[in-house]
Every structure is written in structure tokens, then in C-alpha cells.
């Protein structure tokens, strides 16, 4: 069966005591946690340092989720989506996972509507940010805080 604990949950100091088997599972090598870029650095990497304006982007995410393994996210951008004025890309970044990047979606004018939805992992309660790159080279963003609660019953490693 499941050989590994299904733990992406590095929030609780990276340590999870697994029931029954009494194994101590180190969910996250701490060194890597320290080297991840900050949310700001990750956004800068996407925009190439171009200032990001607030507005136009709507980030929908439940404020409180039952399980961080699949958090539904919808991003909508105000845009006519014409050949001359459209959303080129939408990027998602997180504050506290081992890596800041979540995904980058490439749309273009043929999308017809500037909206994407997906499901993402959140290791712990944290801030999420969505950044949209428009066809005129401008960047717009919106952020949201998500509280992640945990499921109660856990499993053995057998």
C-alpha cells in the first residue's frame, strides 16, 4: 500500500509523528526550506522586475480549507481578450511551501475569457498571489490568505 506518508505538510515544523509505527518522518529537509525565494522574489522573477499594480485580477480561493492537498483556485482578470488587448500569462505563487512557484498559465487572445481554475497544494496556512501579464507588458496582481485545517484520522504505513 502507501509506502510513504502522504505528507506535504511541512508547516508543523516539518515533523510528523506517525501513529502505530511510531516512526519519525522528516517531511522537509530544512536546508531547502531556507533557500526558497520569498514571495516577492518569486514575483520579481516572473515580471523581470517590472512593478506590479494591484487591481484587474480576482483571486478566488476558499478562506478556510479542509485539506491542503487540493485547494481550489480560480483566477479571473478584467480584460477584453482581443488581439490587441489580452492576458498573456497568469502565474500563481505561494508564501510557505518548499517552493514558491505553483504554475504559470499561457492564455493569449484565443482564450476568449481571462479565467483559469485549478487545484493546488498548500503546506500550511499562508498567502497566495496571482499575477497577470497583459499584452501591453503591464503586470497586475491580487493576493489572498488561506487557512488550512487538517483531516483527523490518519493511517499507518502498512
Amino acid at each position: 500500500m502507501s509506502v510513504a506518508k502522504h505528507k506535504f505538510r511541512v508547516g508543523r515544523r516539518g515533523l510528523i509523528l506517525v501513529g502505530g509505527a511510531g516512526l519519525l518522518v522528516l517531511a522537509l529537509p530544512p536546508a531547502r526550506a531556507l533557500t526558497r525565494p520569498s514571495l516577492q522574489e518569486a514575483v520579481n522573477g516572473f515580471t523581470g522586475g517590472t512593478p506590479v499594480e494591484t487591481g484587474k485580477v480576482k483571486l478566488d480561493v476558499p478562506p478556510l480549507v479542509e485539506n491542503g492537498n487540493a485547494v481550489g483556485v480560480t483566477v479571473t482578470v478584467e480584460s477584453p481578450m482581443t488581439a490587441g488587448d489580452h492576458v498573456r500569462r497568469i502565474a500563481l505563487f505561494n508564501e510557505k511551501n518548499p517552493q514558491a512557484d505553483v504554475a504559470v498559465f499561457t492564455l493569449g487572445s484565443r482564450a476568449g475569457r481571462a479565467r483559469i481554475a485549478t487545484r493546488i497544494r498548500l503546506a500550511t496556512s499562508q498567502t497566495l498571489i496571482a499575477v497577470a501579464e497583459l499584452s501591453d507588458g503591464s503586470y497586475w496582481s491580487s493576493s489572498a490568505n488561506v487557512i488550512v485545517t487538517l483531516a483527523a484520522c490518519i493511517e499507518d504505513l502498512s
Partner: peptide, 25 residues
């Protein structure tokens, strides 16, 4: 089950509850 990140049986679900109360499943 989002927790499992995959599909699982009723018996797997019950095992989870048994382990939760620290019983031998």
C-alpha cells in the same frame, strides 16, 4: 480522498479510523 491524494476503499478508510484510536487495524 484529498488526504490520500488518490482513491481508496472503505476498508482503507476504516483502517484509518482504527489507527486513529491506536487500535491494531
Amino acid at each position: 480522498r484529498l488526504e490520500w491524494q488518490t482513491i481508496g476503499s472503505l476498508q482503507r478508510r476504516m483502517r484509518g479510523c482504527m489507527v486513529g484510536v491506536r487500535a491494531e487495524p
